[in-house]
């Protein structure tokens, strides 16, 4: 394709580049291969870290570990609620920032970037501090605000929100807003224009952002560790129980999440590339 490939010198360069790329991909996937492979392991002790032999048992009994399973379910619940909230609010912000020109636009931009440029540990610690303050001020954090499900969802929505807003904004940067005018000229009202023209066109971007923020949420340990109260998400459970055990069911559940999200990712990229044609 590129003209550079017609020259023998850069042909060699291209070969080297491809080998390097393949090696980096191997580096990226080594732990993933390990996780899937060790989901078929038959560990003799409590730690599934040495290869002992092949078995299908773990996949036949993926929910054998009750604590792990409930943490897994809670992680999914947290991700579902936070991603939904963040996607709705974040996409609204992205729309406002890319469609309208108004005073304070760049200020809002900086405000959005800040949570992403703040280390997770500071986000987690500051939220914890505020929840403790609420408690001291007599706002009943022990019941309603109890550091747990509720506070985890607040925290996850926060970091997903900035992420969704910035990603969707980047995705709709090239959107041709004259399409809306065209719809209006054809007699469509503002709501109809949005739901029939704008929304379907920006939906792939929103979906991709939601999918990636789902990954951020289900993965998070640091922020959650500050705001979890008595609640366990899957990463928290894995960390805490690592002192005594590391069961192959962890690998099975991780592989399941991996397979489903990889399928969604590939599926959505196929759909969007079809649409592009």
């Amino acid at each position: 394709m590129s003209a550079a490939s017609s020259k023998p010198v850069s042909n060699k360069g291209k070969r080297v580049l491809q080998v390097v790329t393949a090696l980096v991909f191997l580096y990226l996937f080594a732990p993933i291969i390990w996780i899937v492979a060790f989901s078929f392991n038959k560990p003799t002790g409590k730690y599934n870290l040495q290869w002992k032999g092949f078995t299908l048992d773990n996949w036949l009994h993926p929910f054998a570990d009750a604590d792990l399973t409930s943490a897994f379910v809670r992680s999914l619940q947290v991700a579902a609620v936070s991603v939904t909230l963040a996607t709705v609010m974040g996409s609204m912000m992205a729309l406002a920032l890319s469609k309208y020109r108004f005073r304070g636009n760049s200020g809002v931009d900086i405000f959005l970037v800040l949570p992403l440029t703040t280390p997770e540990i500071v986000l987690g610690a500051s939220l914890l501090t505020m929840f403790i303050d609420f408690n001291d001020a007599g706002i009943p954090t022990e019941s309603f605000w109890d550091r747990g499900m509720f506070t985890i969802i607040i925290a996850h929505t926060l970091f997903c929100l900035s992420f969704v807003a910035l990603t969707v904004k980047a995705r709709i940067r090239g959107f041709d807003w004259r399409l809306e005018e065209a719809a209006a000229d054809l007699g469509a009202g503002p709501w109809r224009t949005f739901s029939r023209v704008t929304f379907p066109l920006i939906l792939p971007g929103i979906f991709a952002a939601a999918l990636l923020s789902f990954a951020l949420s289900i993965d998070d340990y640091i922020i959650t560790s500050f705001n979890k109260g008595q609640t366990n998400t899957m990463p928290i459970h894995i960390w805490d129980s690592f002192k005594v055990e590391f069961r192959p069911q962890v690998n099975v559940l991780a592989s399941m999440i991996l397979i489903v999200s990889a399928a969604l990712l590939v599926g959505s990229s196929i759909v969007s590339s079809r649409r592009a044609k």
Partner: peptide, 14 residues
Amino acid sequence: VIPFFTSFLIRTMA
């Protein structure tokens, strides 16, 4: 992006 969809923690343990 795909390796992202397994936990950071599990990848590190891997």
